[in-house]
Structure formats: structure tokens, C-alpha cells
Design a binder for these strands. Sequence first.
RNA 1: GCGGGAGUAGCUCAGUGGUUAGAGCGCCUGACUGUGACUCAGGAGGCCGCGGGUUCAAGUCCCGUUUUCCGCCCCA
Length: 424
Amino acid sequence: MAGKYQAPRGTFDVLPAPYAKEPVFEAHRWHAAESSYRKVAGLFGYQEVRTPIFEDIELFLRSSGETSDVVSKEMYDFKDKGDRHVALRPEGTAPAMRAYIDSSMGGQGVVSRLCYFGPVFRYNRPQKGRYRQFHQAGYELIGSPSPLADAEIITATVRYFKEIGLDNLVVKVNSIGRAETRGAYELAILSHVDKWLDGQDEEQQAKARKNPLRLLDTKDPDLRAELDGLPSILGFLGDDSKANFAALQEHLAESGVAYEVDDSIVRGLDYYTDTVFEVVSTEYGALCGGGRYDGLVEQLGGPSTPSVGVGIGVERALLVADMAGKAPRAEAPSRWYVVAATESARAAARTLAIELRSMGVGCTLDLDGRSVKAQFKQADRNGASMTAVLGDDELANETVSVKDLVTGEQKTLPRHVFLRIADD
RNA sequence: GCGGGAGUAGCUCAGUGGUUAGAGCGCCUGACUGUGACUCAGGAGGCCGCGGGUUCAAGUCCCGUUUUCCGCCCCA
């Protein structure tokens, strides 16, 4: 029966596998998601930053763009007791960059590789694969303008997906150029859809005027048809952008990354320049989003610093991995369960448990004076693969009876021999 | 933020307005007083999401609310 209180709307509890409401909320899957994140960080040399989950709201208004939906209508913001206007972070890049600048990690032409893993918040309507508190694993490469940097981030992203069992994903890449050249393309879009736009409501028109690029990734079939014949943004890029995009593709091919160019990828945050990319699933939309943001550090008050990064949606990645039948093995809390077969052996069972743990061997035992049968049942349910049984006979002979719960085999060993083999 | 479906035992779900709300699985106890996973017997467990209303009578009909799922907006 559900209790009086439950996890707030759009949030969930991560629990031991038997109790989790959905496979994706199973604790061992999160352990795998986190260790994969760390493994990829190690493989590429990224170091972790952990930033607060809330920040001055200005940080997000400045970086993501005030007109983006993420900040204009999906932010969890509030005034604290000191009347500071703060917001639960809606994404991971801006805080990481804020920390980077705040701690003067840049300078002297250093290239910084930073990564993070943690909850982010967006106030929108929850659905499967869409939560108000969800998690992002992110990698940020700060200080290099080279397309090799873009390729490295994408390669790391693909490796992350591979680590959690998703190895057939295709990355969609695009280049949206620089602010200087984007204006011409935005005009081209607007004049192309001019007539269609006249028939739209106020909200749609305002949106289109503020960020015409956002029209490109629409799902509306009418608009889709209307966009037919619109020249690609790739033809509007400046020479540098063109060269970088071509180089990026070469580097991706060189790294064996499966990718395709999709000029409808535009991303929802305003800070991107040149490279943008994502991996999408048919069921849950984007699994990650990333790209280059050469203006961001400067925008946040740091020195002009070219950067590129990615945010990976952990829930969606796990959801898709689960659908693909890729699940990490559930972990047993401990391998051994110490059973007291007689009342007089309970103290000895406790002593044995203490000894095992001091050797670094995990074990569990009954605390409530339950029957032998119940203890074995607990051992089974606990996921223990072995039981160490102590009763009057074992005490008298200084032995331990070892039962393998998988094969059902049982044998009695001298106590000192048991202690030697217990951590095998 | 807009539209629709659903919420009954720990879980998956039955349940024409009419006794004391059921099944399967799980759980507990016993058969087996020193042995789990199989079998058999017994048992515990429910404010039918929450709050109102209609009715002689509501799990069932109506309204509100909340959570969840689906679509839209948007996104990871």
C-alpha cells in the first residue's frame, strides 16, 4: 500500500532491484551508469567537477538564452531567505563553466578536460523518459578550437553509450556556424516560410522571430512540407566553419564513429556555435545533446575560451539499454551468509562474521533469533551464494559447515581452513 | 501549460449499483525441532489514490484533486 507521501511529481527513488518500480530505477543500473561514466573519463583523461545543484539564476539566463524554453518556462527557481534569486540547475554545462572560471582553471593556454555526473531539474510535464529531476553525465573540453576536440567529445559520448551496452547508435552531427553568418540563414528561413507564418498564432510567430533555427527540427508535418526546398544551413557557413565541419567528419571517420550529417539538428540552448550533435531514439527522443560553444566562457565573464562538450541523459540511456535487453548483473549485498544452527552457536556466528569482515570478506547474518530455515531463506533472498553454518557439532570440532546455495553442496571444513578459502 | 487513459493486497490484475471485495505470484507458519530454491496444508495481509456528491445502498455513477501513462509544447 502506498504510504502517505510519495516521491514528488516527476521524480523517482532509485532502489534495490526487487523494490524498484521500473528496471531503470534499480540501484545496480545506476552503479553501472556511474562507473561507465568514470571509466570513459579515465580513458580520455577527464577530471570531475561537482558543483552545487542550485546557482544564481542569472547564470542560466545569460548562458542558455532567456528566450529558450528551458529557461523561460522550465526552470525551477525561487527566492531564498536572503532574497537571492536562485534556480535548480537545468543543465550541467553552465555550472561547470562557472566553476572553471571561478577557480581560474584556464590561463596559460591550458586545455582542461572536465566531467560531471548529477541531477538536473526542469519543470515540465513528466512522461516516461522525461522527469523533473533527471541526471546528466557530461564531458567538457575547454580551451581548444580544433575540430579534433569536437571529435574527441563525440567519440567519448559514443564510448559511454557502448559501455552501458548501446553499441548500435548513430550520432547526428551538424554545424550551425557562427553568429556572423547565422543572420543571413535566419533571414532565408523566415522569407521561405513567410506565408505559412502569417497563418500561425501569436506564440508561434514570436518563437519563429526570436530563433528561426528552431523551426528546422519541427515535428509539425505542415511546417515540414513548407520547409521543403529550403537550402541547407551548411551552404551558409563561413569558410572556417566549413573547413572545421569537414575536418570533424574526417576525424570521426578516423575514430570509427558511426555518424550522419543531419542539417535539422539545431539544439535548444542559445550558446552553441559551429558543431552541434545528438543521438536520438525513436521512443524517447534525444539521448544526449552537445556541441561547441566558443562564446560561453567569455559570456560568463571569463577569458575568451573555445570549448566543446556534451550532456548525456542518463535515464534515457538506461531506458534504451533496458529495451535492448542490456542490463548489468544485479549485485548481491554480500557473498556469505553466516547461519547459527543452534541457539548456543549464535555468539560464535557473530564472532565469525566479525572475523570475516576484518579480513575484508562481506557477510550477513540474522539478528532476530530466527529459525535455521528462516536464516537459509534470508540468505537465499539476500542473494548470498554461500552459507557458513555453525552449530553445536561445529563448535565442538572447531569446524565450519559450508553450503553452496547454487549447487546445494555442503561440506565441513576445519575453521582455519574455512577462513583461508572464504575470500576466494 | 493544453487534451486523453488509468489508479483495487508487497507485485500483476479480476470484480453487472446489492451479503463480510477476489485470483495468481510473493510473504509468514507447519509437514522437516540443524538447511534455502521443488511439493503439500494452513495463515496474515485492503480507509478499493484522496476529498466531496447522487442513492435505501458506491470499488462500481457524478464532480474536484493528486499521481502515473499516452499525445501536444519542449527536451535529456
